[in-house]
Design a protein around this nucleic acid. Structure first.
Lengths: 354, 354
DNA sequence: TCGCTGAATGAAAGCGCTTGCAGCGAGCCT
DNA sequence: AGGCTCGCTGCAAGCGCTTTCATTCAGCGA
């Protein structure tokens, strides 16, 4: 209310009858001052409603107790979960999250990274492997530890926590192949601006190639991630290149879009069409039939990135790469193709972790 | 790479052959120095890869160019959208977002608020009207402008941007009443820890009371927000107090859960059961039938909160309360109750903004 | 030619905190 | 009892930047 300057540490020290230095120590580390002194300072601080001045502290210690994160659209539920988990984990350790987001735009990412460095972020978390070269270079030059998340960096140059999207994608494609599918369509994400989307698409190609199957270009659509776009893309595939018995979504919303479009058109899932997604968002398990997908432990990734960063800041060293599990979750949207004399495994109605 | 101390402004000044003060001015305001001088400084800065030290600047200017936000679980898609929009809007103005989240825990919110104040947030955005008294008091004492979001504060004491959840809830309940429903059940959010959930439930009661209808306690279930819990709650309602013809979800995921449970049980929607939600998440419009709901413009709320805060920081004044539109979106999940000789309005298949 | 004006620049005082170093007693050993 | 160690405290020097106030100097009118 009143514009009485908020109390500084000097005020606390005076009120407690000790020097500035002692007050500082009392607040920082109980072991540094006598118990009585400490109590006096704490009381004075409480009485005055003292709030430490972070900038001053940061200037003096060269530590801001802040971690920066630059994420693609935080409104993608999967990033939202990671953000939340990360923020929570940091809070426990007395750290705070500086968050910036961008729309899959690497220049914006670079700008955001600079802004966070300038704000004094002690560590940074980025998403994915692909960035403007300056982004990582700036971080390295500034001596700021960073973690790349979601993907795995096989060059061994960067700390990272995530999973191999390509091999997960291979796994789920094999699941379809094992069921007997040969004609497969893909609704991919934006492979030009998103390395996860690219890896996932490559994984599909790899798995097919391993069985001598080619993925024709007309069976692939690239769109931004959303249910509506997944629906539209599925419709487009049906127009353009009908005859496929399974469709692979670049992520769950895309797959759910395809599922809804099937329902709207009366296409039976999985009897006439199998559908798989990627991510395992909450809804995937609630739909009927449930969506077969790859579980990406997004919250765990966020938490783990935070944990590793804090460990490194504390001087402990951590393995360069942390691989997170990404199990295939078989639910009801996958089954043998129509007229299949193919594989034994029937579509299971009950979720099962494979 | 090398641990050469990163360059300070003094280094830039030296390289440019000017004083520290001039270098500072050249970077801060072009109008303050001669064009030639300015260019020299800019070049030197670029050459050295100079990055300003935010903490030092914050200490000197008493401004951190940072806005704090304390949100309930950021992984709720509706908050995620607001976070993203807010971060984006701030970035354009050279501000950065300091984000903290909590799980509907007011003490955690207070702690987070303190942490953000300590980090020097120039402004704050909080969600909802209910907080620990210290939370707002601390903010006021520190002279930090804040915006309460989502809800509207009718006391006129606080700046806020949001909507009246109660009157929106009344509107959507009236929609059901107008269709002829009299037996109504509610799957509410956690009213003890969430004032939006409480207001929404109160709105239902108000609307019913206005037509002389009571809402029996057994027709109300309170659960956390999620599709799975919505499903379970709907099932519980059917056991406990069958006979209702419409169910009101405290938010869209809850309503979608009810919808899925109906589908699983073969209950026709809307012929045998009408369902409404609240929020209008993306999926609501994609389902078939589409979910009738209230559209809460969450991204706009985030953006608007940012806009207002920046304006206030710039010394401009803004109206204390900003009301956001929250239209009723009528889609396919609502229709007349079975055997209704009631109202004219048939369930419309096409979305319509009312 | 001299003094005046104003634009451009520089010197230096902080902003609020941490921390190395020094001082000061009290306790302990011999 | 004297000297030494050690725990606690205070002094003061920054951390890197902004900003006030003073200074310099070019340009101009008289």
């Amino acid at each position: 209310m009143a514009s009485v300057r908020s109390p500084r540490l000097a005020d606390v020290a005076r009120a407690a009858g000790v020097s500035l230095a002692t007050a500082s120590r009392a607040l920082a580390d109980p072991a540094l001052v006598r118990e009585r002194t400490r109590k006096g300072v704490l009381d004075a601080a409480a009485m005055l409603g003292y709030v430490p001045h972070g900038a001053a502290r940061a200037l003096a210690t060269r530590r801001s107790r802040t971690i920066g994160a630059v994420f693609p659209p935080v409104d993608n539920p999967i990033f939202a979960g990671a953000t939340h988990a990360l923020a929570q984990h940091l809070a426990v350790a007395g750290y705070t999250l500086l968050l910036a987001s961008h729309d899959y735009d690497y220049d914006a990412e670079l700008a955001a990274t600079r802004a966070l460095i300038e704000r004094g972020a002690d560590g940074m978390v980025l998403v994915g492997l692909v960035h403007r070269p300056e982004t990582l270079a700036t971080l390295a030059r500034a001596g700021i530890p960073y973690e790349l998340t979601w993907s795995l960096d096989c060059t061994g140059r960067h700390h990272c926590v995530g999973l191999s999207h390509r091999s997960a994608s291979i796994r789920i494609t094999q699941h379809l192949l094992d069921l007997g599918h040969r004609e497969i369509a893909v609704i991919a994400g934006d492979t030009a601006h998103n390395d996860r989307a690219r890896e996932r698409l490559d994984g599909v190609r790899d798995a097919l190639a391993a069985r001598g199957i080619r993925l024709p270009a007309r069976r692939v659509v690239e769109v931004g991630f959303s249910v509506a776009r997944g629906r539209a893309a599925f419709a487009a595939l049906l127009e353009r290149a009908p005859g496929f018995t399974a469709v692979i979504g670049g992520n769950d919303p895309l797959a759910i879009g395809a599922l809804l479009e099937c329902r709207a058109r009366g296409i039976a899932v999985p009897d006439a069409m199998s559908i798989v997604g990627f991510d395992d968002i909450e809804l995937a398990g609630e739909l009927a039939p449930g969506l077969t997908t790859i579980r990406v432990p997004s919250a765990e990734i966020g938490r783990e990135a935070g944990r590793r960063l804090l460990a490194r800041l504390a001087g402990r060293s951590v393995p360069k790469v942390k691989t997170m599990p990404a199990p295939l979750i078989v639910r009801g949207t996958t089954g043998p193709p129509p007229h299949a004399g193919a594989k034994p495994a029937p579509a299971r109605r009950r979720p099962a972790v494979v």
